[in-house]
Every structure is written in structure tokens, then in C-alpha cells.
Amino acid sequence: MAGVLEQLIRSQNRVAYRDLKAMELEAAKEILAEVFRIRLSEVDEMIRCRFEVGVSVKENGLWPQEFRL
């Protein structure tokens, strides 16, 4: 019984984590749209293009795909 409860709790935590990350992504996209004065669809296109490029910062001077503070 304890094992089942632990699995349920872990499952709920994963869902909550994904929901939180989705909310953070939406907020970041809204901030980008406001800063650059563009539509959300254009932000999505910017992000998609950036991930397709897949080159390093040193090669072309673009922002990295990921960074941490």
C-alpha cells in the first residue's frame, strides 16, 4: 500500500513540476513579446528557429540555447 501511495505522490509531483515549467515558459514568452513588441506567434518562431540552428555561442555570437545563473 505504501508503495502505491509513493507512486501516486511522485506522479503528482511530476505533473505539478511540468505545469510549473509550462507556466514559466508562457510567462517568459509573454515577456519576450512585450520587450520586442512582437506577437506571441513570432516569439514561438524565434524560439523554434533558435533551436534549429543549434550552433554554439562562440561560433556566431548568438545567445546560448540554455544558461544558468
Rank of each mutant, 00 (worst) to 15 (best):
M1R: 08
M1N: 10
M1H: 08
M1G: 09
A2K: 12
A2T: 10
A2Q: 03
G3M: 07
G3V: 02
V4Y: 10
L5F: 03
L5Y: 08
Q7Y: 05
Q7E: 10
L8D: 05
L8K: 03
L8R: 03
L8S: 02
L8H: 08
I9D: 06
I9R: 12
R10E: 14
R10M: 12
R10S: 13
R10G: 05
S11G: 14
S11F: 07
S11P: 04
S11K: 15
Q12T: 12
Q12W: 11
Q12E: 13
N13L: 13
R14M: 11
R14N: 12
R14Y: 11
R14L: 13
V15R: 10
A16L: 04
A16S: 09
Y17R: 13
Y17P: 00
R18E: 04
R18D: 08
D19S: 06
D19V: 08
L20W: 09
K21Y: 07
A22K: 09
M23I: 14
E24Y: 04
E24R: 13
L25N: 13
L25K: 15
E26K: 15
A27S: 11
A27H: 11
A28P: 04
A28W: 10
K29F: 03
K29V: 01
K29T: 00
E30C: 15
E30I: 10
I31L: 10
L32Q: 09
L32S: 08
A33W: 00
A33Y: 00
A33N: 02
A33Q: 05
A33S: 03
E34G: 11
E34N: 14
E34K: 08
F36D: 14
R37P: 09
I38D: 00
I38M: 05
R39C: 02
L40Q: 09
L40N: 07
L40W: 06
E42L: 14
E42P: 00
V43P: 02
V43M: 02
V43I: 10
E45D: 10
I47L: 04
R48M: 08
R48F: 05
R48D: 06
C49L: 14
R50P: 03
R50Q: 15
R50H: 15
F51G: 06
E52Y: 04
E52V: 12
V53F: 10
V53D: 04
V53E: 12
G54I: 01
G54V: 01
V55M: 11
V55E: 07
S56M: 04
V57Q: 07
V57T: 13
K58W: 03
E59H: 03
E59S: 03
N60E: 05
N60S: 08
N60L: 02
G61Y: 02
G61P: 02
W63P: 14
W63N: 14
W63K: 11
W63Y: 13
W63E: 08
P64G: 02
P64Q: 01
Q65K: 06
Q65F: 01
Q65E: 04
Q65P: 04
E66K: 08
E66P: 01
E66F: 12
F67V: 01
R68M: 05
R68P: 00
L69T: 07
L69F: 06
L69W: 04
